[in-house]
Simulated assay, not measured.
Amino acid sequence: MNKAILFNFDVDKANKKIRVERSFDAPIDLVWAAWTEADILDQWWAPKPYRVETKSMDFREGGRWHYAMVSPENEKHWCIFDYETIQPEKQYAGIDAFCDENGVVNTSFPRTHWTNNFNAGQEDSTVVTCELQFKALEDLEALVKMGFKEGFTMGLQNLDQYISAQFYLRKQKKPDNRARVCSYVNFPGNTEEAFNFYRSIFKTEFVNGIQRLGEVPGQENLSEDVKKMVLHVELPLVGGHILMGTDAPKEMGFTLTQGNNMHISVEPATREEAARLFNELSEGGNVTMPLQDMFFGAYYGSLTDKFGINWMINHQNI
Score class of each variant (00 low, 15 high):
residue 264 I to E: 04
residue 62 G to R: 07
residue 222 L to Q: 04
residue 116 N to W: 15
residue 206 F to L: 01
residue 220 E to K: 09
residue 201 I to R: 02
residue 268 P to T: 12
residue 158 N to E: 01
residue 180 R to F: 14
residue 72 P to R: 08
residue 172 Q to V: 11
residue 19 R to Y: 14
residue 88 P to F: 10
residue 256 L to N: 05
residue 24 F to I: 05
residue 231 L to R: 00
residue 16 K to M: 10
residue 104 V to G: 03
residue 166 Q to W: 00
residue 203 K to G: 04
residue 2 N to L: 12
residue 146 M to V: 09
residue 204 T to A: 07
residue 203 K to Q: 15
residue 179 A to T: 08
residue 143 L to H: 05
residue 209 G to V: 10
residue 64 R to M: 13
residue 40 I to F: 12
residue 81 F to Q: 02
residue 221 N to G: 08
residue 294 M to Q: 12
residue 121 G to N: 07
residue 252 M to I: 03
residue 162 Y to K: 03
residue 272 E to D: 13
residue 46 A to G: 08
residue 201 I to E: 03
residue 307 F to T: 03
residue 245 G to N: 03
residue 296 F to Q: 01
residue 138 E to W: 15
residue 36 T to P: 04
residue 242 I to P: 00
residue 82 D to A: 09
residue 250 K to W: 10
residue 29 D to T: 11
residue 164 S to A: 08
residue 235 L to M: 06
residue 196 N to A: 10
residue 115 T to E: 09
residue 273 E to M: 14
residue 258 Q to H: 12
residue 6 L to W: 04
residue 229 M to H: 00
residue 302 S to A: 13
residue 305 D to G: 06
residue 286 N to C: 10
residue 129 T to M: 14
residue 107 T to A: 11
residue 152 F to Y: 06
residue 177 N to H: 07
residue 288 T to K: 07
residue 133 Q to A: 04
residue 53 E to S: 05
residue 81 F to P: 00
residue 240 G to T: 08
residue 101 E to H: 11
residue 224 E to Y: 09
residue 266 V to S: 05
residue 31 V to A: 04
residue 130 C to W: 15
residue 237 L to W: 14
residue 309 I to N: 06
residue 251 E to D: 11
residue 223 S to V: 14
residue 143 L to P: 00
residue 21 E to G: 04
residue 305 D to C: 12
residue 259 G to W: 12
residue 289 M to I: 12
residue 86 I to R: 04
residue 167 F to W: 07
residue 312 M to T: 06
residue 210 I to E: 05
residue 69 M to K: 04
residue 71 S to G: 09
residue 150 E to P: 01
residue 93 A to P: 02
residue 5 I to Y: 09
residue 237 L to N: 03
residue 40 I to G: 00
residue 251 E to L: 06
residue 88 P to S: 11
residue 256 L to D: 00
residue 116 N to R: 05
residue 195 F to S: 02
residue 186 N to L: 03
residue 66 H to R: 05
residue 60 R to Q: 06
